[in-house]
């Protein structure tokens, strides 16, 4: 390409990128600052007391409900993802390669479930769980999360399996392989990126959820996003602990997302690259 990377326009473009990068990083850097600021200097500008720092928030967070809530999050989001993968992968395979009718209606239904207002699902679940004694249980929340993860996994696996040439499957069928064998030994190894992306994004749907957990759990069974709100009360807000909790929730996800970037892009919209 002809090099036009000179001149004021290009400089302007770079400036724009720097400004946008500052916008993206400001809350991140600010959380790090908040984490290490002692309570008494929270409301003093950093440049007036640059050396005031402490590790108090680590102790405060460790003593709070947050670690237990983190485990609840892992169990429910993880459980919902594993369940969705086990059930959703074969379904995605059948939709992509089964030559079935009603694929348009199915894709509409899956999208509708993704777009439906969560309160429309949570409200009836709440009333049902209330009667079945599933309210405030991890099992109840896991199955509720499955209503987020399963349609998503089916949709993304459908997309990635569609890219596998049908000839491969036909050839294996001629050789006498059964459908489960074809899926397990041929199709799945070829779509590993798709499975990884579906697993990660499906997990994040549940991991990042606030609404379901707010309605369906309380106290002992609350997930991490709900437990963060315990640091907010009418009397005071524990900004340091909140910032640290945010970092704890985000830090493990950042490398995963950076690693899986490519795969995620392919399955995010599911449709952009067909």
């Amino acid at each position: 390409m002809i090099d036009r990377r000179t001149g004021y326009r290009f400089a302007l473009g770079r400036l724009m990128m720097i400004v946008l990068l500052c916008f993206a990083l400001l809350p991140v850097l600010w959380s790090i600052v908040l984490t290490f600021r002692p309570k008494i200097s929270l409301f003093t500008p950093i440049w007036e007391a640059p050396l005031a720092w402490s590790l108090d928030n680590f102790g405060a967070l460790a003593r709070s409900d947050f670690p237990a809530a983190l485990i609840n999050s892992l169990i429910t989001a993880g459980g919902a993802t594993i369940l969705a993968l086990i059930v959703g992968i074969p379904a995605g395979f059948a939709l992509a390669k089964g030559g079935l009718r009603g694929t348009f209606q199915t894709s509409w239904a899956l999208l509708l479930l993704r777009m439906a207002p969560p309160i429309g699902i949570v409200l009836p679940l709440f009333l049902t769980y209330l009667n079945l004694g599933l309210l405030n249980t991890r099992v109840g929340l896991t199955f509720a999360y499955m209503s987020l993860t399963l349609p998503f996994v089916v949709w993304s696996m459908w997309t990635s399996f569609s890219q596998i040439p049908s000839e491969l499957i036909e050839a294996a069928a001629i050789d006498g392989a059964t459908l489960p064998q074809i899926l397990w030994k041929i199709v799945l190894p070829l779509s590993r990126p798709g499975v990884v992306a579906a697993a990660i994004l499906g997990f994040l749907l549940a991991w990042n959820d606030f609404f379901f957990a707010l309605i369906l759990t309380r106290g002992q069974t609350a997930t991490a996003p709900v437990a963060i709100m315990n640091f907010v009360s009418y009397a005071s807000v524990e900004w340091g602990a909140i910032a640290l909790a945010t970092i704890v929730l985000t830090l493990p996800i950042v490398p995963v997302i950076m690693f899986a970037n490519r795969y995620i892009v392919q399955s995010l919209g599911g449709a952009v690259k067909g």
Binding site: M17, A24, L25, A224, I242, A243, T246, T250
Partner: peptide
């Protein structure tokens, strides 16, 4: 920078709300 720009994607929305509330 590409990596930095994807960080917000990893932050749960409650945390996003709280951090921006502080800002």
């Amino acid at each position: 920078a590409r990596g930095f720009f994807t960080i917000p994607f990893a932050v749960p929305h409650v945390a996003v709300a709280l951090v921006w509330l502080s800002l």
